[in-house]
């Protein structure tokens, strides 16, 4: 009798039980069920695989890239696809496009991760405080949120970058400033549905202060809708970052940011199409992956939304 197979069997049973024995057990069961449902969604899994691949590429960039992304080789500039040693050709300074795209994955992940941390946290803070406090606090915070929502995002980000100066960190800041209001709206809406519920009243009767109620009892309940929204927004964040890079307001020139690479290749689009096209494909693939995964996560975590969208 094989010990390992029996172990796996019991693990599975433990994860699929209807009668969890502890709070942590119940959470694990819920998470495992969610994972099973996500796994059944092929498109979402495809998105997940693409993103895992992106993560690996970014981590292993120095080993995967055949060339130094910044090394210029003017004798071999604008080499076409399939050139020996340069599978995706070279750009106008003879730099290897494949290597630049591999290193560009790091920049993309860096921007997306930072924005995906900053914007939802700011939104969560503003939204839960507004929703829980109500009254004037709510009115003022929501008015501010509306003002930021009222701006076209890219244009506002442009204006901020113009004021702060170009660069990755400023691009992150500008995108975050334009990205937090929807999270505040969601967090507030969620808070409003809980704030008058019995369990909050019970906690309050036990003497819990608003800070504790918000951080320990309301925040966890807002998380799932925020995570869905963040995953769905990632594509938009990538597109915004690439757009800023394309306009020359994101990463500084020698660094291999995908949007900036498209901008560099733009001058040669009619004669040397691959220079601009390849990094654009990378942007498209990653943002598609985020959209697929986001759709799948929404179906898993929020069944009431249905499959549309």
């Amino acid at each position: 009798m094989s010990r390992t197979s029996q172990d796996r069997q019991t693990w599975r049973q433990w994860l699929l039980t209807d009668t969890p024995t502890s709070r942590a057990h119940a959470r694990a069961v819920a998470a495992y069920n969610g994972w099973l449902r996500l796994r059944a969604n092929h498109m979402a899994m495809l998105g997940l695989y693409i993103l895992l691949a992106l993560l690996l590429v970014a981590l292993l960039a120095p080993w995967l890239a055949p060339h130094d992304p910044l090394a210029q080789d003017l004798a071999n500039r604008l080499q076409p696809l399939g050139t020996p040693g340069h599978p995706l050709g070279t750009d106008s300074l003879g730099r290897d496009i494949l290597s630049r795209m591999i290193y560009g994955a790091r920049i993309t992940l860096y921007i997306v991760t930072l924005v995906a941390l900053i914007a939802p946290i700011v939104g969560l803070l503003v939204g839960t405080v507004a929703g829980y406090a109500g009254g004037w606090t709510d009115a003022i915070l929501m008015r501010v949120t509306d003002i930021f929502l009222a701006f076209p995002r890219l244009v506002l980000a442009l204006a901020f970058v113009a004021a702060l100066g170009a660069g990755i960190e400023n691009a992150v800041l500008a995108i975050s400033i334009t990205a937090w209001p929807p999270y505040a709206r969601i967090a507030r809406a969620e808070t409003l549905t809980f704030r008058n519920s019995d369990f909050i009243a019970a906690i309050r009767l036990q003497g819990a202060r608003p800070l504790r109620i918000i951080t320990r009892h309301i925040w966890p309940l807002c998380l799932s809708s925020l995570i869905i929204r963040v995953t769905l927004d990632m594509a938009g964040i990538i597109l915004a970052a690439a757009g800023l890079g394309f306009l020359g307001l994101g990463a500084r020139p020698p660094s291999p940011e995908w949007g900036a690479m498209v901008a560099e290749g733009r001058k040669f689009i009619l004669d040397h199409w691959w220079v601009a096209t390849m990094p654009g494909l990378a942007i498209f693939t990653v943002s598609l992956a985020f959209n697929l995964l986001g759709d799948g996560l929404r179906d898993v975590l929020d069944p009431k939304e249905g499959k549309s969208g």
Partner: peptide, 18 residues
């Protein structure tokens, strides 16, 4: 729709131009 949500518009413009 999915492609529309995922495609960088500046890139689609360039490819269209090409």
């Amino acid at each position: 729709a999915l492609i529309g949500y995922s495609m960088p518009i500046f890139w689609l413009g360039l490819v269209g131009l090409l």
